[in-house]
Design a protein around this nucleic acid. Structure first.
Lengths: 258, 258
DNA sequence: GAAAATGTTCCGTAAATCGGAAAAAGTAGT
DNA sequence: ACTACTTTTTCCGATTTACGGAACATTTTC
């Protein structure tokens, strides 16, 4: 074989081909896989054993193979999240440039928001989260923004279980929270002033897809003392516009596949 | 290295490790990846190039790598496909029992149909496809049935590029094909007699969802000599009814999730 | 139970892959 | 624009790995 630059790894290519085949055509048995890939059964057997050992492929009792939780976990959770971050990064950057504050991208997870991505303020006093960390959705601006887009049944469930108090500014009355969320929904953004950490606040808005399904939250997060000096309406419009822009961007990214 | 049975392929293991790492900790640059995996940078570079070439990894302008649409695609294929086959299997079975011929479930993919599922005839002479294989949409009955449900712009695109001839029975004139598709649309089923393989034909109909969006094609496929002995109108109605039943079933299956 | 089909292990050997070093490309600071 | 530094890519000798045919083992079918 000629040694050319840019050649790709044959074994890796074979593994990718096998996984893609199982994805489009699985379940398949060993002979079918070997035939379609035009490789020896011994070769196919070894590769399948390797992928089975890693839970990337599962073998059933009927001796057929299909994709396993290892790769499906990547495909269904990890890859979409990375795409979300990658696609939305320019919008987060722009919002950070405009405000100079810490920007968060979050997703709603049960009763919490999870911090998926952040751009940290360079100001001397700033607020920052840990990626992967969680905050109670009803106490922070990105949570409120996302809750305001929940389908009614899901919101009813959320409001039916006790709302914990973290600070004097936490909202713990379900009816009060419901009214608050209606305001957030109409206005397009949510404000939190010390609802979870007494000295931390933010302004957040929800990113929804073309079916109005909730995708994520974008928020500007800052020390309360600095938020108090800002025109919160203007900031809210800024964040809400960023979220709308994100929604459009996600639509554009999705539609070529239609 | 000792040659032991049950050893797994080192290169495949490295690729799996890399992809999992990108999923968990991505985006990462080449040096980070090489350090964490304790492999040479040259090795990491080659593997990343391979995965980038297959769209399983994408490289950003900032020289970081993250999971790509290829991995994402595994989930997209897997989820809708599994659902589709499972739900429609009883309808395919019934059609096979009634006709005794080979039944195909296909999806339109660009200018081709892809064979997603099949039930093979037990008659001594039969037609069969390979799951995952493709046939040109304009030359086979499930393709014609699905093309007849394409939105106008997509059909215009399809007709604007040359229609390849595979046999004397292939339709290669765009206006002729357009008229044919109008007939198919009105009638509810398509007939192919040797348009792709000279001795193979079929009768197909399209499965559409509640928004009249194209989902799949169902077809009865048989040797031409046997099709010639059948009442093609009756068969067409049978297939068209099966496709309608499939559409109803998919609606029912879809609405609890709404 | 026998035959056929399918899958696994063994082993010689060709092919593939490795990593260090050199070359190329990219970034940051002045 | 230039320079220094960092990161990535390419080259190539050498080693390792992975290949497939054949033998063997297991499972399925009649």
């Amino acid at each position: 074989m000629a040694r050319e630059s840019g050649e790709t790894l044959a074994t890796v290519n074979r593994a990718v081909t096998m996984l893609e085949m199982l994805g489009t055509s699985g379940p398949l048995n060993l002979s079918q896989i070997a035939d379609r890939m035009e490789i020896g059964k011994a070769t196919a057997s070894r590769m399948l054993q390797t992928l089975v050992a890693r839970d990337w492929v599962v073998r059933s009792a009927d001796r057929t193979y299909r994709l396993g939780p290892g790769v499906l976990g990547l495909a269904m959770w990890k890859a979409p999240q990375q795409h979300l971050i990658g696609d939305l990064r320019p919008i987060l950057d722009a919002l950070h440039d405009t405000t100079g504050e810490t920007i968060h991208l979050t997703r709603l997870d049960g009763r919490y928001v999870v911090y998926v991505e952040q751009i940290v303020s360079q100001l001397p006093v700033r607020s920052a989260a840990v990626i992967g960390a969680r905050s109670p959705a009803h106490c922070v601006s990105p949570g409120l923004a996302q809750l305001s887009h929940l389908p009614a049944e899901q919101l009813a469930w959320f409001l039916s279980t006790p709302l914990k108090r973290y600070t004097p500014a936490s909202t713990t009355n379900p009816e009060e929270l419901r009214r608050k969320l209606e305001t957030v929904r109409e206005r397009g953004y949510a404000v939190n002033l010390g609802g979870y950490r007494p000295d931390v606040g933010g302004v957040g808005a929800a990113v929804v897809d073309h079916n109005s399904q909730l995708v994520a939250g974008i928020s500007v997060c800052a020390p309360v003392y600095r938020l108090a000096t800002m025109d919160l309406d203007s900031l809210g419009v800024l964040v809400s516009d960023a979220a709308s822009e994100a929604s459009r961007l996600l639509d554009k990214a999705a539609s070529p596949h239609g």
